[in-house]
Write a protein that binds this DNA or RNA. Structure first.
Lengths: 194, 194
DNA sequence: CAGGCTATTGGCAGAGTGTCAATAACTCCC
DNA sequence: GGGAGTTATTGACACTCTGCCAATAGCCTG
């Protein structure tokens, strides 16, 4: 055999490998139906290694979630010369397209499933929403103001639920979704001045 | 001792007792940190009884969730003589007050925490949101139209996130929350005609 | 008060989780 | 090229948790 029974990798590489496997499994089954044995098997690794790298099954789950939940980073469109509402519409369209291609993970993670007030899962999602709000604010060309960011991040769950109606249920058209969300954003960022 | 070691109750009573205990525990700890032993102990019951009544630990969790997640039933205000936007505002105020008194559970349950597309938890929340949309539509005095209900239920997560900003983080005032949500509802139910 | 119905229990078997000392892959240096 | 050291990786062990089921004993009815 060309590959020895045991392969030794750089820690970061192995970490990635395990997280990737976790993302794969958790995209098909909920948390408590995925055993550490299954996770280890999918990653092609001994079960103990999961605890070595992540300490905890839950911690690995959170790490996988952090990756799946983040809005795709890159260049949001920016058109300084166009009016605010048009810039906003373009940003919304960009987000919806990204959601469409990028997969369901972002759409499906809109809040805490447990009833617990401050859960670790909620913290992960909050961080992602906060970051998204920052990016959008920047793309629209508004200052990264505390009050503005509060308003924008509270619309993040709305984005996800509207996307669900559009993508998964087909109860809204893309155009309707764009229109509703654009108007909402404008509503939220403008009402600050009132 | 006045109470015998074993007490025999009517099934519905015992069910309630167990669900109530579960609600109590799940409001403090996430799902996978609550053992069936703890649930049974809290309810003052043998562990096996949980499986007898609910079959599954998960099923008990979902039942507890169903109760915590539902918007308080009763009479939403209704003022047929006032204009639409004023009626809407009154309904929004009623909901926010209810959220304020009623506790955090409703606010905290805004979506699925796992990455899994169609989760059982999501189904419970969807049902609650659907029902809430129906109630609100009725209170505002609009017809229970499919298209309208789609729009309204997609705003449910927004209600929850705005309430979180207001109640838990204090980053929005009550008045701001009322104003933002009222405008959003009007936006969503009106844009249908466009 | 006896007998039956069934709510309730306790213990068992299997699966899952975290820990830890032992193992062996890879590197560095001679 | 080979030996020693570093540390990534493993496998087994102890423990907890879950679901199941036959045995038990409240409560009701006659």
């Amino acid at each position: 055999m060309s590959t020895p029974a045991r392969v030794r990798l750089a820690p970061e590489v192995r970490r990635e490998q395990i997280v990737a496997a976790a993302q794969r499994l958790y995209s098909e089954q909920p948390y408590d139906q995925v055993s550490t044995a299954a996770l280890a098997h999918e990653a092609g690794v001994a079960r103990g290694l999961i605890n070595h790298y992540f300490g905890d099954k839950r911690e690995l789950f959170l790490e996988a979630m952090r990756r799946s939940v983040v809005m795709p980073e890159p260049e949001l469109p920016y058109f300084p010369d166009k009016p605010l509402d048009e810039r906003t519409r373009l940003v919304v369209e960009w987000i919806l397209d990204a959601a469409g291609e990028y997969g369901q993970a972002w759409v499906n993670a809109s809040g805490a499933a447990n009833l617990h007030g401050s859960s670790d899962v909620q913290a992960v999602i909050d961080a992602a929403d906060e970051r998204a709000a920052r990016l959008v604010l920047d793309a629209i060309g508004l200052p990264d103001d505390e009050a503005l960011r509060v308003r924008l991040r509270s619309t993040a769950p709305l984005f996800k639920s509207v996307c669900r109606e559009w993508l998964q249920r087909g109860t809204l058209t893309r155009e309707e979704a764009v229109s509703l969300l654009t108007s909402t954003i404008l509503l939220f960022v403008r009402q600050e001045h009132a």
